[in-house]
Design a protein around this nucleic acid. Structure first.
Lengths: 198, 198
DNA sequence: AATATGTTTGTGACTACTCACTAACTAACA
DNA sequence: TGTTAGTTAGTGAGTAGTCACAAACATATT
């Protein structure tokens, strides 16, 4: 079945993510992607010059999704705590929607083969950390979070929370709702971080 | 140079860990291990029937190291907070001593190829979580940690902290002291968890 | 002490297979 | 009819694992 290059490219990227989830990022071969789609292996190289370029397209797709989700969370406009919670929720939602993401962060592809890919994801993590720190600082100044700790440290605790829960979810049988469990633990941590006056 | 099987096996396991750190777990080929040691590729198969068996030996080596470190931490005998901190410190020290560990957790080898390997590491994580939860519960009963939260949740927050810091260390340029930075953040989190009366 | 016998460790050449990638050709679409 | 998505058939570089054989070692016997 013949498709436009644009559609085919999108289909290939989606299939890579799907397969990365199913069999692990480093098991995603061009042959596996092609046969899942229903074209020959060589056909992939009409759309992407190398496999690295294909992975780069995947990374950009994922990064766009993250950026969009964070934007949505920040535009809630309510208090800093609401935005903070929404950021965490968005992160969990994105991970759940792209379950290959945690594994991808540690794949050979990202860490060894493709330095550009690594830079893309590392930058995203830094951005997320920055967004959290900003909201935390605002909350501290508003007196809703205790001010006796650096906002950066609190942000590290929260990103760690996300990663820790995501890892438990990914390494286990994914036998719990990532977003729900993640937000539950966020609320626990948030109570610890809250200013004592309330 | 001819060596006893015991020595050679240990050398092979150590080399696998070294290479896993250097080039990524999934780039560790039998040929690479052999040439690093200075024997032929075929020689490896005199000591391990398959590559999977070799990885299993690596996993057992690492697991032994973790168990030993935890034992040492628990035998400090002082209060629960001291033991808790020592557990965390031991974990960071082990990760720093085996820098391939975080990547190993997400390697193709562990997640796809070798189900037994996966079980080994997953069991260890569960054990660690259990040790933390026990100490936290003791500390809560002694009134040094606030009791208005499940010990299990607090343990998740702490294991997440370890994983989060380890990830930042592994994905970045390892440009900070893992143990020191980890313990610093542990102390921050610990202050949040501390009972308000003191 | 010297030699014979079996065992253990290692080699070199090989197999069967997988992978990313290429070149020449073909069929659908505008 | 020209452009573009796709195919068929390959290449070269790995990869785990096998196998016949050799050299080092251990031990028992003379």
């Amino acid at each position: 079945m013949r498709k436009s290059a644009e559609l085919r490219k999108a289909e290939i990227v989606a299939t890579v993510l799907d397969l990365a989830d199913g069999i692990g990022p480093d098991r995603v071969t061009t042959g596996a992607v092609a046969s899942q789609i229903g074209v020959t292996q060589a056909a992939l190289f009409r759309h992407f010059p190398t496999k690295d370029a294909l992975w780069q397209a995947v990374a950009e797709h994922v990064a766009e999704g993250l950026a969009l989700a964070w934007d949505g969370a920040l535009n809630l406009g309510d208090g800093p705590l609401v935005r903070l919670r929404a950021l965490i929720a968005a992160q969990f939602a994105q991970i759940a929607a792209t379950p290959a993401l945690p594994m991808l962060l540690f794949s050979r592809e990202l860490n060894v083969t493709n330095a550009e890919l690594r830079a893309t994801f590392h930058g995203r993590l830094t951005t997320f950390h920055g967004l959290l720190a900003t909201e935390i600082r605002t909350a501290q100044e508003a007196g809703v979070l205790r001010g006796d700790m650096p906002a950066n440290d609190a942000a590290v605790l929260l990103t760690s929370l996300v990663q820790g829960v995501a890892i438990r979810w990914a390494l286990g049988a994914r036998d719990f709702d990532l977003r729900a469990e993640g937000l539950r633990l966020f609320d626990v941590q948030c109570r610890l971080l809250a200013a004592e006056g309330k």
